[in-house]
Computed example of a mutant assay.
Amino acid sequence: MGVNPHIENLEGWIGAGVRRILPMSELADAFAPTYEQVTAAVEAVGATVVGPAYAEYFGMPTDTVDVEIGLAVDRVVGMEGFEVRTHPPTRAVVATHVGPYERLSESYRELMPWLEMEEFELSDSMIEFYDSPPGTDPERLVTRLVFPLG
């Protein structure tokens, strides 16, 4: 299996982001402006971005998606209009997608039957961590697909 699903113990982290419900057709265009907005707000309160960009998806997407788009930060800070949450350490199913974001659906098609076969009890959200820095060749982009266990 190319996405190499396995169980990991993940460290806790703090996320600062914007949560919204979007039409699926608008999701891809929401990332860049949201990251710029979050980065500016984080810097304005004196916090620091310390980890990868992320998108946390709540529930199963249909023609709309409930998503929080954000960045890992160094501490909990007050940021009006933003979600700032501590994510505790957790066990999760983790898989890896390598390649353009436009092909993420291929990795999910590979992963989902395995998840169903293993019958894990999952939490009500999942997270994509975008581990590659801006400017990375699209064929080399690394995205972690994280399904916390319930």
Rank of each mutant, 00 (worst) to 15 (best):
V49L: 05
E139W: 02
P52K: 09
E121N: 14
Y130S: 02
L145W: 02
I69Q: 00
L104R: 10
P33R: 13
S132G: 05
P113M: 10
L111F: 02
I14H: 01
L104S: 08
M1L: 14
A30V: 09
D74H: 06
V65D: 04
I127N: 03
I14K: 01
S25H: 09
L27A: 14
I7N: 07
S132V: 08
A41Q: 05
L71R: 05
G81F: 03
R75D: 02
P100G: 15
P148S: 12
L104W: 06
D63G: 08
E36Y: 10
V45K: 04
E128V: 07
T64L: 00
E102Q: 14
S123D: 15
D63C: 11
T39Q: 12
L149S: 06
M24N: 10
A95T: 07
I127C: 13
A53E: 03
E68F: 01
R91K: 11
F129E: 09
T39Y: 12
R144T: 12
S107E: 01
A40E: 11
F147A: 07
P138D: 07
I7H: 08
E110Q: 14
E121A: 15
Y54C: 00
W114N: 02
N9C: 09
R144I: 06
G150T: 00
D66A: 05
N4A: 14
V3P: 05
L141R: 12
P148T: 13
E68T: 13
V94L: 02
S123N: 13
A55Q: 04
E26C: 04
L149H: 02
Y130F: 14
S132F: 08
Y108M: 09
P5D: 09
H97Y: 07
A16F: 06
G46N: 04
I21T: 15
F31P: 00
M126G: 09
N4V: 12
G81M: 00
E116T: 12
T143D: 04
P138T: 09
E26L: 09
T34A: 11
S105N: 12
R91V: 00
V18C: 08
M112F: 14
